[in-house]
């Protein structure tokens, strides 16, 4: 399989400004040395809690956020340092769907204009061709073309998300970052939008990076999953493998925290102690050690590298050795 996206040692620090001269007084280490790749045609899920840096990572990959360091290779081309004018043609190939179906649509633009704008900006077709394409895309995402002169506030959350999806795919991109695409929607609408994403992937041969916190959603649509914690990837594996044999203690706790809609299942929870530390001042060594049941001295001293334990399963933990899993013990 061909790697469509490759991220190497990506770092993104945001300055915390302070003092009378607005100088950086500290850095939010949102993404801190993260490497992974996404195969063509697959859905790569990036999960984590707030402050894990998953959204920052997703937006940095398509250069919506400027990376601090590292390398982003898209479709064989290094796009890390490309200036905006050279990046523009590549933007056609990579698009994004936002979380907030309310904030991501310009309230003063009719939806037909919103969907047409990418064509206009990239100078594709004349006005008539653009309008035909808009109608075609609206039908594809399940919107009535008659509504193209309507404004976003007249639509429900689910329909707005369809408009956002239409805008993202109107240029026929190869790669789409879906940043929490259903988390703002009602339960009955979430399934509709997930189905639409799956259907579009099949029809248009899309590659997705799905950024989400809901593990059930990520499991349903992803081929492979990366788990992030405080700016680091702690585990990467194929979906089935990750859910059947999670190796990192954080992944294990995360999976056990998922509520299940079945009153007969009374799960033994791995309850994590305490809160997620601040990404401004992350713990030394392994960042999860402050909440980890198995933490030992070494965890504070050395940062565990992300190692391959076989069949594309990567874990960053001192107690998981190459090729085999060492039992955790207190």
């Amino acid at each position: 399989m061909r790697k469509l996206v490759e991220v190497q040692n990506l770092i993104k620090y945001f300055p915390v400004l302070g003092g009378i001269f607005s100088r950086p007084v500290a850095w939010v280490k949102a993404v801190d040395d993260v490497s992974f790749h996404i195969f063509e045609g697959e859905t790569f899920g990036l999960v984590g809690e707030s402050g894990s840096g998953k959204t920052t990572a997703g937006k940095t990959i398509i250069r919506l956020i400027e990376p601090t360091k590292g390398k982003i290779i898209f479709d064989g081309k290094d796009i890390t340092k490309l200036p905006e004018n050279q990046l523009r043609p590549i933007r056609r190939e990579m698009q994004i769907i936002f979380q907030d179906p309310y904030g991501s649509l310009n309230p003063r633009m009719p939806i037909g204009e919103i969907i047409r704008e990418p064509l206009l900006v990239h100078g594709i077709g004349d006005k008539k061709e653009q309008e035909e394409r808009v109608v075609e895309i609206m039908k594809l995402v399940g919107l009535r073309p008659e509504y193209l002169r309507r404004y976003p506030h007249e639509f429900s959350g689910g329909q707005r998300q369809r408009i956002g999806i239409a805008r993202a795919i109107v240029l026929n991109p190869k790669f789409v970052v879906a940043d929490e695409p259903v988390s703002a929607l009602d339960a009955s609408i979430q399934a509709q939008v997930l189905n639409l994403l799956l259907e579009l992937q099949q029809k248009l041969a899309l590659t997705y990076l799905l950024v989400a916190h809901n593990l059930a959603v990520v499991r349903h649509v992803s081929d492979r999953i990366g788990v992030m914690y405080l700016g680091k990837i702690v585990e990467v594996a194929e979906t089935k493998e990750l859910f059947s044999t999670p190796l990192h203690p954080y992944t294990q706790a995360l999976l056990s925290a998922i509520p299940i809609p079945d009153p007969e299942i009374k799960k033994e929870r791995i309850l994590l102690q305490g809160d997620i530390p601040s990404p401004i001042n992350p713990p030394s060594g392994c960042r999860f050690r402050t909440r980890c049941r198995f933490a030992k001295d070494i965890c504070a001293e050395k940062e565990p590298p992300l190692i391959d334990v076989g069949s594309g399963h990567y874990v960053a933990c001192h107690f998981v050795k190459e090729g085999k899993v060492v039992e955790y013990s207190k």
Partner: peptide, 24 residues
Amino acid sequence: EYVEAARAIGVSNNRIIWRHILPN
């Protein structure tokens, strides 16, 4: 986010200023 969305599409700064932000 709609400004970010416009940047993701590749809309120029001037168009963002006059077409997206000013009307709002």
